[in-house]
Design a protein around this nucleic acid. Structure first.
Lengths: 114, 114
DNA sequence: TCAACAGTTCCGAATTTCTGAACTACGGAA
DNA sequence: TTCCGTAGTTCAGAAATTCGGAACTGTTGA
């Protein structure tokens, strides 16, 4: 397992963020992580929208979110803790995350871009 | 050639909008249409970013933008006039278009979501 | 009717996405 | 150390999507 890649703030690309959030399943995952604030483990995220996401698919989703710069994942023992990078992203692209979550009917959490 | 489909305001889906604008080429097309205000014909849009977009690809791009509800196309004689639906989209998802265009470094035009 | 033009549709190739199976990484028990 | 269970990643083949040249549709003008 190679170390997880997280883009630097100046390397964030709007197209990657929009693409990552153009899938409602990923939006649900992201909103959950951003809402909870942290500690969104993969297993905890596997059945958000009434269907169980296969873990290989979930892993791919996490990778897309991570490489878009939306979340940060760090290994903590056996599991992976994921937390949002909303504040960072908001520095770089003010209002973007909030507008997107709001369009999806998911009011951004206080801990994130709000 | 079947008549062009344009979604009603209440049928706009954030995922379609984000997907449509997750491609820099489409963003360039959309920004051009939104900036000019109208009369963005396909041939006028074919070489925005230093490369000539094949017309079949361009037609697909226009379809994606149209079906996301971002532009409206109407036949005017031989050619097709495209104009943005920014104001409508902004009613439905306030601030979304502005935040996205701003993230791409394309300040939204006064005629659109500003 | 014919030609030219603007854009769409068709279709095969290339790319991407999905997901079960195999695998890696870590922690605990013996 | 070795073995086992858990969490998540990577692999690989099938399915779906995207790209773009060629053919086509629809319009204008001669």
């Amino acid at each position: 397992m190679r170390p997880l890649f997280h883009p630097a703030l100046e390397d964030l690309k709007p197209e990657a963020i929009l693409y990552a959030l153009s899938d409602p399943e990923r939006v649900a995952i992201f909103a959950q992580i951003a809402g909870v604030g942290s500690s969104g483990t993969c297993t905890a995220l596997a059945n958000l929208g009434g269907r169980v996401i296969p873990k290989s698919s979930l892993s791919q989703h996490m990778k897309v979110l991570r490489e878009a710069g939306l979340i940060r994942g760090e290994r903590q023992g056996v599991e992976m803790r994921n937390h949002s990078r909303c504040q960072e992203v908001d520095q770089r692209f003010p209002g973007l995350i909030a507008a997107i979550l709001s369009a999806y009917g998911r009011p951004p959490a206080a801990t994130s871009a709000g």
